[in-house]
Design a protein around this nucleic acid. Structure first.
Length: 264
DNA sequence: CTCCATGTTTAGAA
DNA sequence: CTTCTAAACATGGA
């Protein structure tokens, strides 16, 4: 789940359930997701405080109680938030639980423990140190995008997923963006015409925004989207051709061989 | 048992 | 320097 649109939806979810509420207790069930942070430090930082602001950059979510110290959430491949009612029994793989003042509990669930939680003083500083590119939805101008596509030697899918070039796009949404723009994932970005590159740029904006509008639920996405059909044996929602699966950047890429012709 | 999975990092090879 | 590949991380579903 957790690519840019997912994290944006997590942000809204977090805000609507916890903003302004006080943290009564923090329960850490797996310290593996805390990287180099100690459970006690997280507790001391949060107990008796209330969350006041949130920021997202790419796949990272930053949350603060005082604007001076921030908690960074990364969701790995399987992370998400879920709010539980007072008497509700927890399911899944809650790794860190924030008990709120009225007794409800917000769980950071991360089955595969590839997510990360840590503390930092300045999100912008973290973004710079980490070398993250501009947020793919909010900060990526056409000019910058064209520069990246025209100068790089990498394949289109790898470029979209490269967090140092632009932040937020992962395996699922890079496939969707290229499918909607009719570009093969292995196409070299520098070999695209300016018009083709512009189609990719438009698709990027539209796909990410549409996914957020649909709250990232495949059933609610437009009928011509690849995402709900992204499985072997499925047919292209635009032309009915059987979808293909190829490997790019060490990940599986799904594509329609008819709508996205093989480069060269 | 084997293969695969929405992410990132790292080592080594072109 | 850029880019690609494979492997590793931890866990579970098919």
């Amino acid at each position: 789940m957790p690519e840019l649109p997912d994290v944006e939806v997590f942000k809204d979810y977090f805000e609507s359930h916890t903003l302004g509420k006080k943290v009564r207790e923090v329960e850490v069930r797996s310290n593996q997701v805390l990287t180099d942070l100690k459970p006690k430090t997280l507790q001391d930082r949060l107990v008796e405080k209330s969350f006041s602001s949130t920021r997202r950059h790419g796949k990272h979510l930053f949350i603060s109680t005082n604007e001076a110290e921030w908690i960074r959430f990364h969701f790995g491949m399987t992370g998400f938030f879920r709010l539980y009612g007072t008497e509700e029994k927890m399911t899944g793989h809650p790794r860190v639980i924030f008990v709120l003042s009225e007794g409800t509990e917000l769980a950071y669930d991360c089955q595969r423990k590839l997510g990360e939680i840590d503390l930092l003083s300045d999100p912008l500083d973290y973004i710079a140190k980490k070398g993250l590119g501009p947020d793919a939805l909010r900060e990526l101008s056409w000019k910058r995008f064209f520069g990246i596509f025209a100068s790089g030697r990498a394949m289109a899918k790898s470029t979209l997923m490269d967090q140092s070039k632009m932040a937020g796009i992962g395996n699922i949404y890079s496939d969707e963006i290229l499918f909607q723009s009719g570009v093969h994932p292995r196409k070299r970005t520098k070999d695209l015409s300016q018009e083709e590159t512009h189609k990719v740029y438009d698709a990027l904006t539209e796909v990410l925004q549409e996914a957020i509008n649909c709250e990232v639920e495949p059933d609610r996405m437009p009928p011509h989207y690849l995402l709900p059909h992204r499985e072997k044996g499925e047919l292209c929602p635009k032309c009915g051709t059987e979808l293909e699966k190829v490997s790019v950047s060490g990940r599986s890429a799904y594509l329609c061989p008819n709508c996205q012709p093989i480069p060269q």
